Amino acid sequence: SDIKVHVGDITVELHNVSEEFARLVEEALRLGLNEEQAKEWAHKALH
């Protein structure tokens, strides 16, 4: 599904992702990663 993740003043739109993936992206953003890094990190975490 499509999910918007908000962290501080950052909003990341995720398309066709699981809630778990979105949660991992949100966690990575909170750790200070940028959007691209957060998506990559979440992807690796799920595989």
Results as ranks from 00 to 15, higher is better:
1 S>V: 15
1 S>G: 13
1 S>C: 04
1 S>R: 15
1 S>Y: 09
2 D>P: 14
2 D>K: 14
2 D>L: 15
2 D>N: 15
2 D>S: 13
2 D>A: 15
2 D>E: 12
2 D>G: 12
2 D>H: 15
2 D>I: 15
3 I>D: 06
3 I>Q: 10
3 I>F: 13
3 I>E: 05
3 I>W: 04
3 I>T: 09
3 I>M: 10
3 I>L: 09
3 I>S: 07
4 K>I: 15
4 K>R: 14
4 K>P: 08
4 K>G: 09
4 K>A: 13
5 V>C: 04
5 V>L: 13
5 V>H: 08
5 V>D: 06
5 V>F: 03
5 V>I: 14
5 V>P: 05
5 V>E: 06
6 H>S: 15
6 H>V: 15
7 V>E: 06
7 V>Q: 07
7 V>W: 15
7 V>P: 05
7 V>D: 07
7 V>M: 07
8 G>K: 06
8 G>W: 00
8 G>C: 08
8 G>M: 03
8 G>R: 03
8 G>S: 06
8 G>Q: 06
8 G>P: 07
9 D>E: 13
9 D>A: 14
9 D>N: 14
9 D>P: 09
9 D>Y: 02
9 D>F: 04
9 D>G: 15
9 D>L: 11
9 D>K: 10
9 D>M: 11
10 I>D: 06
10 I>T: 11
10 I>P: 05
10 I>N: 07
10 I>V: 14
10 I>W: 06
11 T>F: 11
11 T>D: 09
11 T>A: 04
11 T>S: 11
11 T>M: 11
11 T>K: 09
11 T>E: 11
11 T>G: 03
11 T>Q: 07
12 V>Q: 04
12 V>Y: 00
12 V>C: 03
12 V>E: 05
12 V>F: 01
13 E>M: 03
13 E>G: 08
13 E>S: 13
13 E>H: 11
13 E>Q: 13
13 E>W: 01
13 E>A: 09
13 E>D: 13
14 L>D: 07
14 L>I: 06
14 L>N: 05
14 L>K: 05
14 L>W: 02
14 L>T: 05
14 L>F: 03
15 H>C: 06
15 H>K: 13
15 H>P: 06
15 H>M: 08
15 H>I: 12
16 N>S: 08
16 N>T: 06
16 N>Q: 11
16 N>A: 07
17 V>S: 09
17 V>Q: 06
17 V>Y: 07
17 V>A: 11
17 V>N: 05
17 V>W: 08
18 S>F: 07
18 S>G: 09
18 S>N: 09
18 S>C: 03
18 S>I: 05
18 S>Q: 06
18 S>W: 04
18 S>L: 07
19 E>P: 13
19 E>D: 13
19 E>V: 13
19 E>G: 10
19 E>T: 12
19 E>H: 13
19 E>L: 13
19 E>F: 10
19 E>I: 13
20 E>L: 13
20 E>T: 09
20 E>Q: 14
20 E>G: 08
20 E>W: 09
21 F>N: 00
21 F>S: 00
21 F>Y: 14
21 F>K: 00
21 F>D: 00
21 F>C: 03
21 F>R: 00
21 F>H: 02
21 F>W: 07
22 A>K: 06
22 A>D: 04
22 A>W: 09
22 A>Q: 06
22 A>N: 04
22 A>P: 01
22 A>E: 04
22 A>L: 06
23 R>L: 10
23 R>F: 08
23 R>Y: 07
23 R>Q: 10
23 R>E: 06
23 R>S: 08
23 R>I: 08
24 L>S: 02
24 L>V: 02
24 L>K: 08
24 L>A: 08
24 L>C: 02
24 L>Y: 11
24 L>N: 02
24 L>P: 00
25 V>K: 02
25 V>S: 00
25 V>I: 09
25 V>R: 01
25 V>T: 02
25 V>P: 00
25 V>A: 01
26 E>C: 09
26 E>A: 13
26 E>Y: 10
26 E>R: 09
26 E>N: 06
27 E>R: 10
27 E>L: 14
27 E>G: 04
27 E>D: 10
27 E>W: 10
27 E>M: 13
27 E>K: 13
27 E>P: 00
27 E>V: 12
27 E>F: 14
28 A>Y: 09
28 A>L: 04
28 A>F: 09
28 A>T: 00
28 A>C: 03
28 A>M: 04
28 A>H: 02
28 A>S: 02
29 L>V: 03
29 L>A: 02
29 L>H: 02
29 L>S: 02
29 L>I: 08
29 L>M: 10
30 R>F: 08
30 R>N: 10
30 R>K: 15
30 R>Y: 09
30 R>W: 11
31 L>Q: 13
31 L>A: 14
31 L>I: 10
31 L>Y: 09
31 L>T: 08
32 G>M: 01
32 G>V: 00
32 G>E: 01
32 G>T: 01
33 L>C: 05
33 L>A: 04
33 L>Y: 14
33 L>W: 07
33 L>F: 12
33 L>N: 02
33 L>K: 04
34 N>F: 03
34 N>I: 02
34 N>Q: 04
34 N>K: 05
34 N>P: 08
34 N>H: 03
34 N>W: 02
34 N>V: 03
34 N>R: 03
35 E>W: 09
35 E>R: 04
35 E>A: 13
35 E>M: 11
35 E>L: 15
36 E>C: 09
36 E>Q: 14
36 E>N: 11
36 E>G: 08
36 E>M: 13
37 Q>F: 03
37 Q>C: 06
37 Q>H: 06
37 Q>V: 02
37 Q>G: 05
37 Q>D: 14
37 Q>L: 09
38 A>M: 01
38 A>C: 01
38 A>K: 00
38 A>N: 00
39 K>N: 04
39 K>V: 12
39 K>G: 02
39 K>R: 14
39 K>F: 13
39 K>Q: 09
39 K>W: 12
40 E>K: 11
40 E>W: 07
40 E>G: 03
40 E>S: 08
40 E>L: 13
41 W>Y: 15
41 W>G: 04
41 W>N: 11
41 W>D: 05
41 W>K: 13
41 W>E: 11
41 W>L: 12
42 A>I: 03
42 A>Q: 00
42 A>E: 00
43 H>F: 11
43 H>I: 10
44 K>Y: 08
44 K>G: 11
44 K>L: 11
46 L>A: 07
46 L>V: 09
46 L>D: 03
46 L>C: 03
46 L>S: 05
46 L>T: 07
47 H>Q: 13
47 H>M: 12
47 H>L: 13
47 H>F: 03
47 H>V: 12
47 H>E: 12
47 H>G: 12
47 H>C: 14
47 H>T: 11
47 H>P: 04
47 H>D: 09
